[in-house]
Computed example of a mutant assay.
Amino acid sequence: MAAHLYIREHEPLATAGMFFSRFSERLEETTERYLAQDYEQLLQSWEQGPGLVNPVRWLDPLINAAEHFVHHEDVRRAQGEPAREFSPGDAQALYRSLKMLAPRILGASEVPVVLEPQGFDRVIANDRRGVSERGNQVAHVRGSVGEILLWVFDRDVAQVEVHGPSDAIRKSSI
C-alpha cells in the first residue's frame, strides 16, 4: 500500500497505469522498484508529500481525503476494527469527496443511484430522464458518509443499506 500511495503522488506516468492499460506495464515495473526499497525509507519519502510543482500537491485536499480514508479503513477493517464516528470537519471532507467521486464511479449504472449519507444532502449519481416513469428503477444507498464512500469504492466491509435494483449498479474506477 505504501508503494501504491507513493507512486500515485510522485510517478504520474506510472499512475496512469491504474486507469489506462497502455501504461500498465510501466505501473508494474515502478511498483516492483518501490516494493524493493526499504519500507521505512519509502514511508518517510511519502510523508514529505509531492514536490512543490507537482499538481498533486494542489489537488491533495480533493483526492487524498477519500484515498487515504479508504486505504486506512482497508487496514483497520482487516484487523477487525469496527466502523467509527468522525468529527464534523472530517465527515464534511469525506462528503465533499463522495459528491465529487460517486457520480464518476457510478456513472455506468443502469439506474439512477441515490446516496443518502446520514446528516448530509443526498448525492445522486447517474440521473437520467424518465426516472419518474419508472420510479421503482432507482437504487438507494443509506448509511454514514464514510460507509457509503467505502461502498462506492467497492469495499465489501461497508455497512450500508441498499434498496432497489442493486444488480443494475455498476462501479468503475475513476
Rank of each mutant, 00 (worst) to 15 (best):
E85A: 08
L35M: 11
G80Y: 10
Q44F: 08
A66M: 14
R134T: 08
V157R: 04
P82A: 07
E116C: 13
E25R: 05
V138L: 01
S166R: 15
I105D: 03
S97I: 04
G49Q: 09
V131L: 09
H163K: 14
V152M: 03
D127C: 02
A139G: 06
A16N: 06
A36M: 11
D154G: 03
T15L: 08
F120V: 08
R128Y: 03
M100C: 09
S166N: 11
F86R: 05
D38F: 09
E161T: 14
T30N: 01
P112K: 01
R77C: 02
L43T: 10
I63G: 06
P88N: 07
F153V: 00
Y39L: 11
L43D: 05
R122S: 14
E147N: 06
F19W: 10
Q48C: 10
E28P: 00
L101D: 06
Q44W: 09
G89F: 05
W151M: 00
I124G: 03
S132L: 12
E116D: 13
P88S: 03
V160A: 04
D60C: 08
M1F: 12
E147M: 01
H140L: 07
I148T: 01
V160F: 06
R155V: 04
V114A: 02
A93R: 11
V53C: 11
T30P: 01
E9N: 10
R128P: 02
Q41A: 15
